[in-house]
Structure formats: structure tokens, C-alpha cells
Design a binder for these strands. Structure first.
Lengths: 145, 145
DNA sequence: GCTGAGTGCTTGCAATAGTTAGCAATGGCG
DNA sequence: CGCCATTGCTAACTATTGCAAGCACTCAGC
């Protein structure tokens, strides 16, 4: 359990608490956790569960996802875009389709990090049709897994 | 800790495992968790931490977030129509990339409307790699899984 | 028949999460 | 000054997670 680095989490929580100008005990009470435990969390002595993080986030009026990111439960990609969350939450997609979409999304973002300009080229038009077809056809492939 | 409803999580993991056609021991081994514990998780007797969920998800080749949703760590509040708006609102993507993503997304959904909730098969793993490659290198024409 | 490999589960236990009771320090007020 | 309220933390404890050792069962091969 100590494998995850939670030092940032505690500092982050204390920081948010100080910004909100509430005491440790007040936050613990409104979060529904014991104040010694919150103290331990802030000092990095404990690694709280996601449920505790939810409670703390709610009491701090911040998103639980922000604390998950700090705790290493969620990747930082959830901090700055709604696309991954929306894709993951879409029940009309299979898990594999979600993975495919997210990987395409991330490769797009990597592209744009390297060349931020956004010229539309005919090559990209072709990639559009090709990507759609490729995603549809592999179902017919024989399984060797 | 027992406040979160984790019955769906265990069924979901077993379902994904069966779809992947691997035994409980095989999954436990590749996930790096003990097989009795995985058995307990699948039967809903234990509520695993996010770190364990990460390990299981990785071994199942699905996203950790999918398991977080099942475990109640992430909300399903993202809804089933958040993807288009999230994609369109993502400023890190070009307009063309947004179109590509949305068209793939919509073709996925059409697929699932015709044959709903097909369980993930190892064949779809190949589709993931192929679709990602096609999107990244649109000038290549050869697509052999 | 037996043996070996694989299967999922039982049981007991160690480690860690999270709580309770209480301490020491600080600040405000009479 | 003393008293009270608030503060964050300590130490002991309880509850739960996650693991190791092993069981009972199935199946295939001899």
C-alpha cells in the first residue's frame, strides 16, 4: 500500500483546507472522518481509500477526481479534459471500444503537442475514413488470444 | 467500508475474465494479487482498493476507470451523451481530430445498437492496435493484424 | 485404478486503514 | 491570573484488506 506516493495528496488537502480557511477538525467533521486520521493523511502517514477521498473532497467542495489524481488513483489526463471521463462513462460503448477511443484521443494530443498548428490536409481526411473502417472490421478476425 | 455497493464490481470482473477466457488463477497471477483474494472480490466478499483495481484492470486489459465506476469510486454522472460535447469542447484537439473521434465514436455506437453489449474478446485487442496505428499514420495503407 | 495439473474456495493471520480517548498548546475573555 | 474553547496531534484500539497455506473437486493421461 505504501507503493503509491501520497505525499502530494496530504499537502494538497492541507492547502485546499487552508484556502477554505477551516480547521482540521472542522474539515474532519464535515467530511465525516476522524480528525486524527485527517491529520495523519495531511502529514502523509496514511493512504486513504477512495471513499475517504470522496468524503474529504465533498467537504472541501472540490471534485473527488482532483484528489484521486493527487493520490495516484486517476491519471492526470482527467484534470484538464472531459473527454476521457465522458468516454469512460458512456455505457453504450464496450470496454474495448473505450480503450480504442482513448488511445486515438491521446495520440491526437501527442501530435498536437509536437506541432500545435492545425492545418487540415487531405491525408487527414483519408485517415478519418480509414480509422473508422479499421475500428469496425477487426471483429471478423480470428481469435488467437 | 461496507457502505459502497460492490456487488456489481465482482460480477463485472468475473464477466470480463470469462470474456477473456482466462482462469481466476491466471488473472490473479497476471494482476499480481492472490487468487483467493480475487475469488473473494468476484464474490463480493471484499472491497478492493483502487490500487488492486488498477492491477486487475491492467491484467484484464481494460481501463482502471471502468472498474472504478463499477466500484463506485467514479461517478456515472458523465452520462451517455457527454462524449460529443466533451470532444467538441476539448481545445487540445484540432477540428479534424474532433471529427475523426466523433465518427469513430458514432460508428461504435451503431455497432452496439445492431448487436448490443457484445462481451470483449481478444480479437478486439487487435482492433485497438490497428485503429490507433491507422489514426497515427494515415499514409500507411497496409493493415494486417 | 492412480497421478498430476488445473480449478475455485476456506481458513487463519499480518498489515494497514480508520476510530476513540486523551494530551499539550494556543488564544480569548472575565 | 484562571477558565474555557479551539487547535493539531499521540497512542491504543477496532475493523478491514490482502496474503499464505491448504482443501476439495474436475479432468486428462497412463
Amino acid at each position: 500500500m505504501a507503493k503509491l506516493d501520497v505525499r502530494n495528496l496530504g499537502e494538497y488537502i492541507r492547502q485546499q483546507r487552508n484556502s477554505a480557511q477551516i480547521s482540521l477538525r472542522q474539515l474532519a467533521k464535515s467530511a465525516g472522518v476522524s480528525n486524527p486520521y485527517l491529520s495523519q493523511i495531511e502529514r502523509g502517514l496514511r493512504k486513504p481509500s477512495a471513499e475517504i477521498l470522496q468524503q474529504i473532497a465533498k467537504a472541501l467542495r472540490i471534485s473527488a477526481e482532483a484528489l484521486y489524481v493527487q493520490a495516484g488513483i486517476l491519471d492526470e489526463r482527467y484534470g484538464d479534459s472531459d473527454v476521457p471521463s465522458a468516454v469512460m462513462g458512456d455505457e453504450a460503448l464496450t470496454e474495448r471500444q473505450k480503450q480504442v477511443l482513448l488511445e486515438i484521443y491521446e495520440s491526437f494530443r501527442r501530435e498536437n503537442d509536437e506541432s500545435p498548428a492545425e492545418p487540415a490536409t487531405p491525408a487527414e481526411t483519408g485517415s478519418r475514413a480509414r480509422a473508422a473502417r479499421a475500428a469496425r472490421e477487426p471483429r471478423k478476425t480470428s481469435t488467437t488470444g
